[in-house]
Amino acid sequence: MGEENKGSSIAPELDAYTEFLKSESCRPLIGDAGEYGEGPLLRIKLTDIILKLCQANSLWPMTFGIACCAIEMMGTGMARFDISRYGSEVFRPSPRQSDLMIVAGTVNKKLAPVLLTLYEQMPSPKWVIAMGNCAISGGPFKVEDNYNVIEGVDKLIPVDVYVPGCPPRPEGLIEGILKVQEKITGTRHPLPQNRHPKSPLRKVKGLRVK
């Protein structure tokens, strides 16, 4: 988008400013422009990093259980597996308030338009996890005389992380969410989680021994 604006030169001052930002002296502030490709005009590296950290640590999934895998998705949110340790416990019923879509189940011909609408209603930036074999490839329903099931949601919407299994265990889904976080920030366990001491229990135990 930035490139096109330059051609029209409606605001020469802005162009000049862009040039200035791209120059070598601003490099530490903005980072490598080539790394990002097209995108917003103004890119401040620090803000970017902080924003991404926030996004990664508060992924809000949409409540969109389709089939069997949805029960494991619910289980992930409950007491034992406790997805809130990774900041994703806020399941939102409305697509407009969520930024992670977990496609947990089989998508068929009738559901496909619904899925597309829901995906389009989610505000950017958004991510998609294909949970379970059905969402990845049609799973057990990929048979010769298949007349209804869509073999993989990636035929409909872009998918970021695939979690295999029929159904995947809750641990699998948690790993998938960690992978999305990794995709957003570039590191596994982005910052706030890193800050926790490696094993707080060790100290407690030490106390007890004394």
Partner: peptide, 14 residues
């Protein structure tokens, strides 16, 4: 209905 029709009966016959 039909948003999650997965052809179980067809698969049973095939």
């Amino acid at each position: 209905l039909g948003f999650i029709h997965r052809m179980h009966e067809k698969m049973g016959e095939s």
